[in-house]
Lab assay of single mutants.
Amino acid sequence: MASQGTKRSYEQMETDGERQNATEIRASVGKMIGGIGRFYIQMCTELKLSDYEGRLIQNSLTIERMVLSAFDERRNKYLEEHPSAGKDPKKTGGPIYRRVNGKWMRELILYDKEEIRRIWRQANNGDDATAGLTHMMIWHSNLNDATYQRTRALVRTGMDPRMCSLMQGSTLPRRSGAAGAAVKGVGTMVMELVRMIKRGINDRNFWRGENGRKTRIAYERMCNILKGKFQTAAQKAMMDQVRESRNPGNAEFEDLTFLARSALILRGSVAHKSCLPACVYGPAVASGYDFEREGYSLVGIDPFRLLQNSQVYSLIRPNENPAHKSQLVWMACHSAAFEDLRVLSFIKGTKVLPRGKLSTRGVQIASNENMETMESSTLELRSRYWAIRTRSGGNTNQQRASAGQISIQPTFSVQRNLPFDRTTIMAAFNGNTEGRTSDMRTEIIRMMESARPEDVSFQGRGVFELSDEKAASPIVPSFDMSNEGSYFFGDNAEEYDN
């Protein structure tokens, strides 16, 4: 783990906690998980779902989305002020799938948001429990990260689609708070800032007046979040320049895209947490497990152990491969979309394939898809080993990566060399080191050039047997250095459309 220093740990961010010791953190995270579980059980009762239907990941996603929508204050306010045809701002819903006479049927349900809020609060001892809501947002974000390569979004903001390893959390809503900021990748933060800068260039009043003052505060806050992700002084200094700019424009845009590229080699610290679907927490609570009393951590053995003992089902389209669908969801559960496939294969105990080789589309089923041909199958979400999630980018030494994705962002704290394609990355730096950030740029390029592919990161860190909950005997895996390590390699994943 990167030293926490003055930073709060993510469990504290996750639970809005002030400084807590490890036991208190485990208890408050457990409380959050228990609340999600209780809410899910109650919703299944309301909807009269069978046990099997309640364990269907598509039903879980609909129920999670309903509660997130019920608590989305800004959108609710907007919907009330701008009524649109056929949208009731006070209601929320989605597809629920039921097994009827041996076939899967889709039923569109509609609930009062007020009623959903009441059920959620009741499951969370009367609190709004925003930490639990954020947790579900991060699960949705991790699922998107594993399912889609955001080529269009990258290109629109002047970045290269091969930089997708920097895009963790790119679909997280803005209201996801400190826990959300911690899991956002460098590219995601750059993209958010670039969008602001572009608006400022096109709209003279963007930075002016009372609204402009708020915009400015948001801009500086985002700059500080991004600065905190960088691990070298030169990158941090460049972020200070971007933040202090009187009138952010093209120079800042250039600096930010430069920094994003540099992060492929001088990786930023991005938190990883295993956020599971509500249909995993519900049955665990129903079986009598007391998360608050037992304590829970999002970055240790607990999620692995929970998945070892969970039964989750998914709808499967006619030509999809259930094992591939399982891999997709497994990666999402562990926030591992940008991790090295060699490491993932070792931990999972079966070969993890790149996205383009998977015969599976996303987990969600569109409303126009034919239910007649839908089957369902068990998702295999178990693992051979477990490993500690990392909050750091690993040290800054790398190795060759593949054509589709030119770097990785480690999820697990496991000893290995970190793949990246130096030639491709360095070719993108057209040696432009003039301007006010020239000395920093020169320094950053120097550090990137001296990074050695064969150097090892996370020295001495290994994986653990599932029986080793105290992480007492690390097993340090050895990897084939020459092997392909990137998930979005030469990829044809669908595009994420909101």
Rank of each mutant, 00 (worst) to 15 (best):
211 N>D: 13
47 L>G: 01
192 E>V: 10
152 R>N: 08
17 G>E: 07
461 R>P: 06
393 G>R: 05
22 A>R: 07
418 L>I: 14
282 G>K: 04
56 L>Q: 01
197 I>W: 05
192 E>A: 08
347 I>W: 05
213 R>I: 08
199 R>E: 04
245 S>L: 03
293 R>H: 11
44 C>E: 13
227 K>R: 14
489 F>A: 02
459 Q>R: 08
22 A>H: 12
371 M>T: 06
291 F>R: 01
247 N>T: 11
390 T>C: 04
33 I>W: 04
104 W>K: 02
404 G>H: 05
84 S>T: 07
140 H>P: 00
35 G>H: 08
390 T>V: 05
378 T>F: 00
323 A>C: 13
375 E>T: 13
160 D>A: 14
37 G>N: 06
24 E>P: 01
105 M>P: 00
113 K>V: 02
33 I>Q: 04
335 S>N: 03
124 N>M: 13
74 R>H: 08
486 S>L: 01
192 E>D: 13
6 T>I: 09
398 Q>W: 00
193 L>N: 04
134 T>W: 00
357 K>C: 00
361 R>I: 09
197 I>T: 10
357 K>D: 00
254 E>M: 10
41 I>Q: 06
255 D>C: 05
247 N>P: 00
111 Y>L: 15
387 A>D: 09
476 V>G: 09
469 E>D: 11
30 G>A: 10
215 T>P: 06
251 A>G: 11
369 E>R: 06
292 E>D: 15
95 P>S: 12
375 E>H: 09
361 R>D: 02
295 G>Y: 05
18 E>M: 03
172 L>G: 08
486 S>T: 11
25 I>P: 00
292 E>S: 08
371 M>P: 15
4 Q>N: 10
25 I>K: 09
122 Q>E: 05
75 R>H: 06
125 N>C: 15
323 A>Q: 14
203 D>S: 09
425 I>N: 09
160 D>G: 10
224 N>R: 00
250 N>P: 01
449 E>R: 06
318 P>D: 14
378 T>C: 05
472 A>P: 02
263 A>D: 02
304 F>V: 06
156 R>P: 05
168 Q>N: 09
480 D>Q: 12
275 C>N: 05
144 N>C: 14
119 I>M: 13
228 G>N: 03
